[in-house]
Each structure stands twice: as C-alpha cells, then as structure tokens.
Design a protein around this nucleic acid. Structure first.
Length: 459
DNA sequence: TGAAATGTTGGGGCG
DNA sequence: ACGCCCCAACATTTC
C-alpha cells in the first residue's frame, strides 16, 4: 500500500543526514516537500537573507536530484498542513524536531491534532548530537555547568549513529499547478536599501558548500585551531555557524568528518565549541525563558542604564574603541562577527555601558546570519554574568588589551575602521579622535570600577 | 574563553 | 666584597 507523506522542513535544509527525509524514503512512500515560513520566533533580517539562499539551494537540489518541487507556504503551520493534508489525502507527516520553546509548544499541538485525525506523525532529532531530555546528572536533574555536562555527553559520543546518506531516489506526490508561493513572495530579502547586495561574494549558501567549508576547515585549520581561533584578522574559525543553524550540515556529520583528528587538541577544542552549542540548546530546553529572563534571578534587580545614545554608538561602531568598532562594523556589514570579538563587544555593552544584555541580544539577533535563539541568549547571559555557568562578574574585558593581544598588528582594525588605518601598529589600539572617528565614549577605568561596584552589590 | 593590584624574586648599578 | 636600592619579570591575590 502506498503511503502519502509530507516531509515538513524546518531548520534542516539538507538532503544528507536528514533523518526525517531518510525515514520518509523507506518503504512505499510518496513524498511532498513542504516548507512553511512560520516565524516562531520572528527571524532576524540578516538571517532571513541566509534563509532565502538556503531555501533556494534546497529547492534547486531537490529539483535536480528528484525532479521534485518544494511547496512553499507562509503562515500558521497547523492550518497550512491541515489544508494540504486534506487536499492531497496525506497519511503521514514527518519532520525533524526543533528545540525553541515556542516551536516545541506549537509542534506538540500539531502532533496531537494530526494523530487524532489518524495521521501518522513521526519526528526525529536531526540537529543535535544529544537529545536534551537524555542528558541528566547523578541526582536526576539537569546540568547547569558546562564542563560536567560535556563530560557526560562525551561518555555517550561513541554511541552516535553514523550520518545518513542522501536518498538515491524517491516517489513524489504530484503537486497541483501553481500550488504554494514563489520563494520571492516570502519577502526574505532586503529591499531598499539592499544592504546585502555584496553578500553573495561573502557566502556561498548550499549543502555542498557547507561540506566544503567543513572539509576546508579540517584540512587546513583544525590543527591550529587552539591558537588560531582567537585572531579575528585571520580565517581560523570554521565559519559553519549559519550552515549549522539552518541545517545545511548536521552536527553529526561534522562530528563524523572530524574523527580523523581523534585525540588531537584542536579537535577537542573544536568539539567543545559544538558542545557549547549543545549546552545552549540544553539550557533553553530546561529553562525556556532563557531569551528573556536572567538565569540567575539575582540579576533581576540589576540597575541597567540603557542609555539610548550609548547604544547607538555601539551599534554603529562609533564607540571610539577601535577593536570594538571593528567588530560592530564587521557585524553590520557582513552579518557575522568573529567569536573573540563577540565576547569583547558584549562585555563592553553590558559592563562598561551598563546596557541590558537583552538589548544586545536583540541587536545580534537582527544582524547575524547565524542568529540562533539558544546560542545567542545563552551566550549573552554568559557574558553578562546572569547565565548558567556564566563568566564571573569581575571578568571584564579591556578592549585595548584584547586588541593588543588578538590583533597585534591591527589588521582587523584597519580593515573595518579605515579612518585610522594609517596609525602605527602600536597606536592603532588606542582611542584617538581623528576627523570622523570619535573620541572614546567612556573612561575604561571609571566604567570598570562602576560595573564592579554594581555587580558586587547584586551578587 | 580577564585585568589590575599587590607580592616576591633576583640581577645589576652604585656607594 | 657588601649592603642597599631599583625595577623588571614573574607569581599570587583580588575584584
């Protein structure tokens, strides 16, 4: 008997190691590829650009490999699936789980609804190495500190099943003419101004490219990862974050690919970065308010100043601190910022400017191509000190020292803050008022001590 | 996945 | 030769 199956795509825009897809291809199934733009949560502007490219590539891939079309819809997921299920006489719905709190709630309702309608609903984990519900500490509760969490995960890492291959062939449900939307109709691309007009040269977005990046990283930079990862002027990180977020590559694929470096320090470090991603999802799973609420409630009484002009200077990269401004401009112009610099600008915003981490989180959310609710909120809380296993309150980065350490020749600064590119390697780290370039917006010593006093009081 | 303040040590200049 | 001081350089403590 032939079963008609919807494969409901979310942040799993790939054909290889797509657990829901490989399941749907087993047995006597006819498949309908469905993508619904159901913004839960609302997607940031830069991420929308990446999503557009990812969908475009996925659409092309299924066309080329299976001569399949992607049915694109926008709106309420349940209503849309319901309508399609009825129209095409669907028997079964399969999808890979997502782990954002609102989406979990939404999907639970959807699953229940269709099961009651006697449809088969099958879900899979295709975006995490470890299912959050399966990792617990000895007392049966959840880990709140990264190291023991990751240690526990590592004891189970050899159980991870190998990535699935791309299904060779599949049967299709024939779509009616003009069913669904054109990709353009989703309004994912910026119009006026089109700030992403040169982004095609920055990102090739495809499943194939995700694997190329992973391999390029492993072949050329993994061995130097421990040291190299900290220098924003160099290209020593994997650059995989947006591809991971939208599922153009899975963490299991990355893990298996990286096994040739087994035992290497670079690999362990790299895997622990994957581990932080897992930990972020894990925390979000057990503490669904993570994007809004301080994990440590002591921080609820933190006297944030939230000065609007200060925030704007930070957002525009006009703080007068070259390293900070380089980072903020890299973010604005490219939708990405080097991890080392993310920590420094976040520390500056929360500690030197006393601006609420949630405001910084929102800015990153809108500007990053790799915006990820779990990673973004967990990381901002980590920097602010309000998070689980957070940086201690007194760990305040000095943007000048960080600049001297991690951009010793000022290459990163020169690239993004050209107004001061003529300064010497020595001078370039220090705030200088030059023409359009502003004076330092705060006194580091003063603002540091002010933050210390406040943090000391509330913790 | 800090930085600054404070403490300790040891070499060298000097009377 | 010796004690004294200075001050890097490193170590420890504190925030």
């Amino acid at each position: 008997m032939i079963k008609k199956t919807i494969i409901w795509l979310k942040n799993d825009l790939r054909l290889s190691d797509n657990r829901a897809l490989s399941h749907a291809c087993k047995g006597n199934n006819k498949i309908l590829f469905l993508y619904i733009l159901d913004e839960t949560p609302a997607i940031g502007a830069a991420s929308k650009w990446f999503l557009y490219k990812a969908l475009k590539s996925f659409k092309e891939d299924i066309k080329q490999k299976y001569n399949a079309d992607l049915l694109i819809k926008s709106g309420n997921s349940k209503d849309i699936i319901d309508q399609i299920a009825k129209k095409y006489d669907i028997d079964s719905i399969v999808y890979n789980r997502v782990y954002e709190p609102d989406a979990i709630k939404r999907d639970a309702k959807i699953k229940e609804y269709f099961q009651q309608m006697n449809l088969e609903v099958k879900t899979f984990n295709s975006s995490l190495l470890f299912e959050p519900s399966k990792i617990k500490n000895l007392s049966g509760s959840y880990f709140k500190v990264f190291t023991p969490f990751w240690k526990k995960c590592l004891t189970q890492i050899s159980n991870i099943d190998a990535p699935h291959k791309i299904p060779k062939s599949l049967e299709l449900i024939k779509l009616e003419q003009n069913e669904g939307l054109n990709l353009q109709d989703l309004n994912l691309l910026p119009q006026s101004p089109n700030w992403a007009k040169n982004w095609d040269s920055l990102y090739k977005v495809s499943e194939e490219e995700a694997h190329n990046l992973a391999e390029d990283f492993m072949n050329n930079r993994m061995l130097n990862y421990v040291e190299g990862r900290d220098f924003p002027a160099t290209n020593n990180t994997s650059f995989l974050s947006p591809y991971l977020h939208f599922g153009l590559i899975s963490p299991k694929q990355i893990y298996f690919k990286s096994m040739i470096f087994s035992g290497n320090a670079g690999l362990n470090h790299f895997l622990s970065e994957i581990g932080w991603r897992e930990f972020s999802y894990y925390l979000l799973y057990y503490f669904p308010d993570l994007p809004q609420k301080n994990f440590k409630s002591k921080f609820d009484s933190f006297p944030w100043e939230n000065n609007k002009e200060d925030l704007e200077k930070w957002q525009k990269g006009m703080t007068g601190f070259p390293f900070i401004d380089a980072g903020m401009r890299q973010l604005w112009n490219t939708g990405w910022m080097h991890n080392r610099v993310r920590m420094v600008v976040a520390s500056f915003l929360t500690k030197n400017l006393l601006i609420d981490w949630r405001i910084g989180e929102r800015w990153f959310w809108d500007c990053l191509v790799d915006s990820d609710l779990a990673a973004n909120s967990a990381s901002w809380q980590w920097v602010a000190g309000s998070g689980a296993d957070a940086a201690p309150y007194f760990r305040i980065f000095n943007p000048i020292t960080q600049s001297q350490k991690f951009d010793p020749k000022g290459e990163y600064i020169r690239k993004w803050v050209p107004e001061i590119a003529h300064l010497s390697d020595k001078e370039i780290h220090y705030p200088v008022h030059r023409d359009e370039y502003p004076e330092a917006m705060v006194d580091l010593k003063f603002s540091r001590n002010r933050a210390l006093a406040i943090y000391k009081k509330i913790s």
